[in-house]
Design a protein around this nucleic acid. Structure first.
Lengths: 227, 227
DNA sequence: TGTACATCAGTGAACGCGCGTTCACTGATGTAC
DNA sequence: TGTACATCAGTGAACGCGCGTTCACTGATGTAC
């Protein structure tokens, strides 16, 4: 956590060393605590222990910092999905279940990132890093869905495929959002948070996947980590 | 639009007559234009042509006004769904398709309301009107899904049913959000906005409904209004 | 190994601005008699 | 029908605050010779 510029036991450091990354972390937390409406560069600076004008050296303005957080958000989502695919097995639907579960768990673990990546916030939407990161995350779903349907990759214009992508993405994305926004609990108020994250999420994914693979896919899930 | 208090041809009116409703309308538009981070009571007052302190007479603070907008949002959603059910027919899945389509169209027609109702914003979450309105909207889906499955209404604790509700809600909600947030276009960049709202939305709903009713339900949709 | 200098990274005081909120007020409306 | 008065609905000036941004600065690091 400490920078290479640090020379003594004192906390004061002139050259931080990795202020950019630190501001992104701190910004993410601020976003989770206060939402966009409470997100300010000055508060980020304060939390990073740095002068009020320091953040603009790295990001220009609020939009620049939010864009950086969104990019990290998409990259992290891609990595979480790819990691979940390792050892997911080859049973029909198993790979789709793995990335769907990873998507939901990622949103819950990093709601700040998730909201800024997918939400309605001021971003530099044409920022090349952001565009690349966003495309990469969606491409994982497209690839796995193609494979599941035994179709060749590449061509666009197949609207049945587009709809399949839209359904899979919408269902998982909607579940994640309703969960982190506290709405999903209304489905059955007698259940607690963990039951939603594990049992209900599993069953919902199972229902979704069945609509892609036909019969009931592989065994009864719950390779899921508890939280 | 003019108030009963108005006495002459002049625009200046002392007693507005329906300032509360007017502020809600104006606030909704401001929210669509600038998001929560640009939402201020003073700007609402300015747009309503009223003094800066007027809004707090009706809503107390920003949270109060947002809560009122959210309540209107839920109520409008319920009404849109119930209206879509009139004349939806009785074919299996037809009623589910109707409320799903209404949900998506409503989100697109009123993104400000939609975001404040379902988003992550400062609201008085225990406000009785808000709670009632939110419950009512979800209850429509629960009712129709129960009917589709031929189950009696009432009891909770059926997790398969909970998962079915979660899937239907998540899919429709996710589709709506990804669409209004401009993300869904990444599914196939060659398609335009109208194609998503009509063709892709129809196909996606069809896929979803098939997972509830088994075979392909009734005829090929598109009773949808163009936009 | 040492020196001079350029560049990088962050400082801190200052500015003007729009915000929420307060408070004594006043014009319009409604009601009792 | 008229009058007195209470209440309702909004005014407008004032306040203190935290914000983004600017700007001349300075300490630390890296490089050329």
């Amino acid at each position: 956590m400490k920078a290479r510029g640090e020379s003594s036991g004192e906390g004061a450091v002139y050259h931080h060393g990795d202020l950019r990354r630190h501001l992104i972390e701190v910004g993410e937390r601020l976003l989770e605590e206060r939402g966009v409406e409470g997100f300010t560069l000055r508060e980020c600076a304060r939390r990073a222990g740095v002068s009020p004008s320091a953040p603009s050296h790295h990001f220009g303005n609020v939009t620049g910092l939010l864009t950086a957080i969104a990019t990290v958000g998409f990259d992290g989502l891609s990595e979480a999905q790819e990691a979940a695919l390792v050892g997911a097995g080859d049973a029909p639907g198993a790979r789709l279940r793995a990335i769907g579960g990873a998507y939901i768990r990622y949103a819950l673990a990093h709601p700040g990132r998730f909201r800024v990546a997918f939400g309605h916030m001021p971003l530099n939407h044409e920022d090349p890093d952001l565009v690349t990161a966003g495309t990469r995350a969606l491409e994982i779903l497209r690839r796995e869905l193609r494979a599941l349907r035994g179709e060749p990759t590449g061509q666009t214009g197949d609207r049945d495929f587009d709809a399949a992508v839209a359904l899979a993405w919408s269902a998982v994305h909607g579940f994640a959002r309703l969960l982190i926004d506290g709405q999903l609990f209304a489905v059955d108020p007698s259940l607690d948070h963990d039951t939603y994250l594990n049992d209900i999420a599993d069953r919902t994914l199972e229902l979704l996947i069945r609509s892609f693979v036909g019969g009931s896919s592989s065994g009864p899930k719950s390779t899921r980590r508890r939280t």
